[in-house]
């Protein structure tokens, strides 16, 4: 995966959020978390994180999959795994 800036990462994450959580039409930014999205339960979170893995060609640990607090933290982890 080539270097990606934060806005590019957020754009990809936004696409995944819109695909998976089709009832959510609010903003997707660094502060977004599962509590704000009705469809984002623990199983949907796994589906979301694996779609993110596939999109960025990265692999998360189980604790990263279950423990990340919001999209901002996720972006930081993605950037770190991409070598930024």
């Amino acid at each position: 995966m080539k270097l990606m800036d934060q806005s590019a990462i957020l754009a990809r994450l936004t696409e995944i959020v819109r695909t998976l959580f089709d009832e959510y039409d609010g903003p997707v930014d660094a502060s977004l978390n599962a509590k704000a999205v009705k469809q984002w339960d623990s199983l949907a979170n796994v589906q979301f994180m694996v779609l993110v893995e596939q999109a960025f060609k990265v692999r998360f640990t189980v604790s990263e999959i279950t423990g990340l607090k919001n999209v901002g933290e996720l972006m930081q982890v993605i950037q770190k795994k991409l070598g930024h």
Binding site: S42, L43, V46, Q47, V50, E53, I65
Partner: peptide
């Protein structure tokens, strides 16, 4: 059980 299912779901989705 819910935690076990999460682990299985991770494998299944990957």
């Amino acid at each position: 059980l819910a935690e076990v299912i999460i682990e299985e779901e991770i494998f299944f989705r990957r």
